[in-house]
């Protein structure tokens, strides 16, 4: 086929043109996920009703999973969806259903000064960390591997096997401990 026939088509159909469009699309998706994360975080820390806060938290975690994907780690993105959205958010939702009185006596922040003071504190911390991050020069080292899942697995079972087992024990103790704490006084 004569390539000049296709010259009216947009550049997306050529190889280098497609790479450019893919980069632009990746940038747009990244911006959307950035906005998702921040909006979810705002809902999670600001909404009056706790169920909405949990929904905002789940939204924020979806954005964070996409950000892990952009940071070259699809494995961590999957774990974020599984653990945070699938386990932590669901657990918090259960706790809200089990342990929140139907009529909440007091709404809003705990005192007249709590909101502004919290905002000031959070703003100071945030801008301090942003200033620190922007003004520091970080040394960039050459990569020794690509960080694939295969290497993560072999490192988890060789170099970090002790920590891996300890985390398993911590999780087991946490499960048993939370069962014991939540069960206490139930038979009364």
């Amino acid at each position: 086929m004569n390539p000049t026939e296709w010259s009216w088509m947009p550049g997306i159909f050529t190889a280098e043109g497609f790479a450019g469009y893919a980069d632009a699309a990746a940038g747009i998706v990244f911006l959307i996920m950035l906005a998702t994360t921040i909006i979810g975080g705002i809902i999670a820390c600001n909404s009056e009703r706790l169920v909405r806060a949990v929904a905002g938290l789940a939204l924020c975690f979806v954005g964070v999973a996409a950000i892990y994907y952009f940071l070259n780690s699809p494995f961590l993105a999957m774990m974020q969806m599984l653990i945070y959205i699938g386990a932590v958010c669901i657990t918090i939702a259960f706790a809200i259903m089990l342990a929140t009185p139907e009529e909440s006596k007091k709404q809003g922040p705990a005192g007249p000064l709590t909101g502004p003071l919290g905002l000031v504190t959070a703003g100071l911390v945030t801008f301090g960390m942003i200033g620190l991050a922007v003004n520091t020069k970080f040394d960039i080292m050459p990569k020794v591997n690509m960080g694939k899942v295969k290497i993560i697995g072999s490192q988890l079972l060789t170099t970090y096997s002790m920590v891996f087992e300890l985390v398993s024990v911590v999780l087991l103790i946490a499960i048993i401990g939370s069962l014991v704490i939540a069960r206490h006084g139930r038979s009364k």
Partner: peptide, 19 residues
């Protein structure tokens, strides 16, 4: 880093103001 700082600030704000 800026995104992480913003999320951290939201967490601090929530910790202070939630009742």
């Amino acid at each position: 880093l800026i995104l992480a700082a913003i999320l951290f600030g939201m967490g601090i704000y929530g910790l202070i103001t939630r009742r």
